[in-house]
Design a protein around this nucleic acid. Structure first.
Length: 482
RNA sequence: GGCGCUAUCGUCUAGGGGUCUAGGACAGGUGGUUCUCAGCCAUCAGACCGGGGUUCGAAUCCCCGUAGCGCUACCA
């Protein structure tokens, strides 16, 4: 049997990091088994779904590089891939269930349902549907229809336990009577989640359903539906939830870290870094690797190395992963990744020059959003001095150091990091200064900052003219008297 | 309330009866990197939810608690 998996987001907001991880696991599983990765849009909640959200979700998935083989934008043999375009299929399936006695029309109103639910709860009984419409005679049904009452279709829950053999959690048993008869087709003609999901997973010949744990309990209902529909159920794998710091399901509310993939993207995170971090939230490769590329994961991913407990999203660790990618990237790669973050001034730069600058500053980057700040000393003519740098230049002998440095460096036969470094050291020797007293004023004068790349590299990237000009500017500055 | 899932350092996790003096990573501390750091190197600190079993031996197996989460909708 060929592997077919799917990611089925509902377009009610932006792509969530949890959704991204689920999509990634599915994608990995498909790619690993030479199977198909299907994208299906679950837009049966007309109130909350929107075309903008759908576009946003697709965009984020593309940005992550999780290409799908079949989907709403590219079709495929089992389309359409948007549930709102499959309504006739659901109705047809639902009517078949009614015909075979596995489902029945229900005429109860929301208000009635709510009242009975409360009463059951108050009486200490499970708040299940009482099944009254199941016992309606044909005449009673007609009467209800004439009255114009809302008509939905409810599934008659099967007796007996449901047993799920989950690929990550093992055998899970749902006792009979756990759920009441549930609606499959709403009075507005739209299917409910559990029904549409089963109808589509069966119709699209999905072999493995890899989804979040919040759907574990739903699986009992879905299993009954597969049986009633005479379809073979796919294998299920329920992956643990991603949690807020307070260990509740990660969401915008109550969470301090961004939940939307787009937020991380805009904050200067790389898709590969996000994916590597997310994969290790719940999956363990079996060795000590902490950074895994798509290919690494493709080689080692396995559902039986996916953990069972929820994981707290740790933005600090994600930052570390992102920084790792940035620190090890080549200049050309950085230029490509950072395109959206590069200051306008880099547009006119020679590509080789820009690549050298990027490699020079990469060690100080955590996100791409740090680019403008780190690049500024090398791009702008006028330096902006950070308070710490201004302080470093306000020390007693700073101006003297810079003046001496300017004089010596002007005479340098050859301008290279090494040459500059030894020249600086010899100036230090003459002045009786070394270490911090010598280098900090120099760094501050050259970059306006107290940290950044190592100084020989700074000197090289800046070039002789700019270095001398900046040293002289500081040297000529009137000493502050204090 | 019912049902289900889960439970190792602050966080992500390894470990599946003796190899555990419980390993790695992030974050934190300290030191080094004859300038800086969010870089790099080294180093320190830090955990088996509780109680009962089973066993010569339990972080590992079983039971009971407890806690957290999820589901319990004509949301997904």
């Amino acid at each position: 049997m060929s592997v077919r998996v799917r990611f089925a987001p509902s377009p009610t907001g932006w792509l969530h990091v949890g959704g991204a991880r689920t999509a990634y696991f599915n994608w990995l599983f498909a790619r690993q088994h030479g199977g198909a990765f299907v994208l299906r849009i679950e837009d049966t909640d007309v109130e909350r779904s929107s075309a903008e959200s759908e576009g946003g979700v697709l965009d984020d998935l593309r940005w992550l590089g999780l290409e799908w083989d079949e989907g709403p934008d590219r079709g495929g043999p089992h389309g359409p891939y948007r549930q709102s375009e499959r309504l006739a299929l659901y109705r047809e399936r639902a009517e078949r269930l009614v015909a075979q006695g596995a489902a029945y029309p229900c005429f109860c109103t929301d208000a009635e349902l709510e009242e009975r639910r409360k009463a059951s709860l108050a009486a200490g009984r499970p708040p299940h549907y009482d099944g009254r419409c199941c016992r309606l005679s044909a005449a009673e049904r007609d009467a209800h229809r004439r009255e114009g009452r809302p008509e939905s279709i409810r599934f008659a829950v099967a007796p007996g336990d449901q047993v799920l053999d989950d690929l990550v959690r093992g055998e899970v048993r749902f006792p009979a009577g756990m759920v009441g008869d549930f609606v499959v087709l709403r009075s507005n003609g739209l299917p409910t989640y559990n029904f549409a999901c089963v109808a589509d997973d069966a119709g699209m010949r999905i072999s493995h359903v890899i989804r979040a744990e919040e759907h574990l309990s739903n699986t009992a209902r879905q299993l009954m539906l597969y049986q009633a529909l005479r379809e073979t159920a796919p294998r299920f794998a329920h992956v643990p939830l991603i949690l807020n710091r307070d260990r509740t399901k990660m969401s915008k509310r109550s969470g301090e870290a961004a939940v939307a993939v787009g937020d991380w993207r805009r904050a200067g995170f790389l898709p590969d870094a996000l994916l590597s971090y997310l994969a290790l939230l719940g999956f363990h490769p079996g060795d000590d690797r902490e950074i895994l590329s798509r290919d690494d994961l493709r080689a080692c991913f396995s559902l039986d190395r996916v953990g069972k407990s929820g994981s707290v999203f740790d933005a600090d660790k994600l930052r570390w992963v992102n920084a790792h990618y940035l620190h090890h990237a080549g200049g050309a790669t950085l230029r490509e990744w950072g395109a959206a973050f590069l200051p306008a001034a880099t547009g006119t730069l020679d590509p080789a020059r820009l690549a050298a600058l990027l490699e020079g500053v990469r060690g100080n980057l955590t996100t791409l959003a740090d680019l403008p700040r780190e690049l500024a000393p090398f791009l702008d003519e006028a330096l902006e001095f950070e308070p710490e740098a201004a302080a470093a230049l306000a020390v007693p002998r700073a101006a003297e150091v810079c003046a001496a440095l300017a004089a010596t460096l002007a005479d340098l036969a050859q301008w290279s990091g090494e040459q500059v470094k030894s020249a600086v050291q010899s100036v230090g020797g003459t002045l009786g200064l070394k270490g911090r007293e010598l280098f900090q004023p120099l760094r501050a004068a050259l970059t306006g900052r107290t940290h950044g790349p190592e100084l020989p590299l700074v000197a090289e990237l800046l070039g002789r003219e700019r270095c001398l000009a900046r040293l002289r500017a500081v040297a000529g500055r009137p000493r502050r008297t204090s």
